[in-house]
């Protein structure tokens, strides 16, 4: 337990350091762009521009701005105002987009685990069979086909040729199926391969032979003695998997017109909405850090040999 607290404190420390670096880099980039956010649009009268600059604190010296914006984030969690979305603060955009993206990501991950692990188990147990071969080929395909290609194929098949699902939008369960599938498919492919490799390794171990020898049913052996050991690589993959799902949701939210964080982030990047983009990058950093920490902790819980450090 003491171990865990120490670990968490260290992780938070690292996270703050990382966030500070990301913030500094973003700030330097923002300030090094010539002109200011208001100079690129149609010209406003000088007096109004002065007012705008004062409102957004752009007339202060650079180090002052760096400190002020940073302090705003630390003390109030205030990430500033969006420069392109009318009357939206970055926090509001995040508050609206986060639940959408989070549910999409969770569905994607659940789908990936639900499909990947059974596929891996079956192909490991029936090694060399037709099922094994076809599933592993599918897995390589799942890794090789980018999810936006998959998305377009799936739209072609299940929206246009066989109209089962709606093409885009958000809100109903039906609208969730296709994006979650596309999001989860590459992750499912990796998980299936990892599960299969892990299973094959554990299957040759002595304790499995003992379990077999004392007459346990094959199901019991696989589920109780092989699977837990084989899950370790899968668990450690869940950290990168989260990153993959978050990245994938950038494109999928665009294709399926889902109003999540990802589509806002892309729009922010395309329209040079610096504050929104910076707020998003900081949020994604926190998200990944939290997910990675959870994965590390659960890894240590599953495998007592692993020490948190």
């Amino acid at each position: 337990m003491r171990n865990l607290v120490g670990y968490l404190i260290r992780r938070v420390g690292w996270m703050l350091l990382t966030l500070w670096i990301v913030y500094t880099v973003s700030f330097v980039l923002m300030r090094s762009v010539p002109g200011n956010p208001f100079s690129s649009e149609r010209t406003v009268p000088a007096a109004i521009e002065r007012q705008l600059r004062a409102r957004y604190n752009l007339d202060a010296p650079v180090h002052r701005q760096y400190f002020d914006i940073g302090w705003g984030i630390v003390s109030r969690g205030d990430l500033g105002w969006s420069l392109r979305l009318e009357d939206y603060s970055v926090n509001q955009v995040l508050a609206e987009g986060f639940p959408v993206s989070a549910s999409l990501a969770i569905f994607g991950l659940v789908f990936a685990i639900g499909l990947g692990i059974p596929a891996g188990i079956i192909s490991a147990v029936r090694r060399g069979s037709f099922a094994d071969l076809s599933m592993m080929t599918a897995a390589v395909l799942g890794i090789a086909v980018p999810n936006f290609v998959l998305a377009s194929i799936v739209i072609l098949l299940f929206v246009f040729i066989l109209p089962i699902f709606p093409a885009a939008g958000w809100g109903t369960l039906q609208q969730l199926v296709l994006p979650a599938f596309c999001l989860g498919a590459p992750v499912a492919a990796y998980i299936a391969r990892l599960t299969r490799a892990g299973m094959l390794e554990v299957l040759t171990r002595e304790h499995v032979r003992t379990a077999m020898a004392k007459g346990l049913s094959p199901q019991a052996v696989v589920l109780k003695h092989v699977l837990p050991g084989a899950m370790l690589p899968v668990v450690s993959y869940l950290g990168p998997a989260t990153a993959g799902v978050l990245t994938g949701s950038l494109v999928l939210e665009k294709i399926f017109a889902i109003p999540g964080m990802g589509s806002h982030f892309i729009n922010a990047a395309l329209q040079r909405d610096y504050f929104l983009a910076m707020g998003m990058v900081l949020t994604y950093t926190v998200l990944l850090f939290v997910m990675n920490s959870i994965v590390d902790i659960s890894y240590a819980v599953i495998d007592p040999r692993v020490k948190l450090q």
């Binding site: 990301v22 978050l246 990245t247 950038l250 982030f265 922010a268 990047a269 040079r272």
Partner: peptide, 19 residues
């Protein structure tokens, strides 16, 4: 631990700036 894909997209925001 920095989510690089997001940082790169952020970076490209600046590279696309006309100036």
């Amino acid at each position: 631990s920095i989510p690089f894909i997001f940082v790169v997209i952020f970076l490209i925001t600046f590279l696309g700036e006309d100036n």
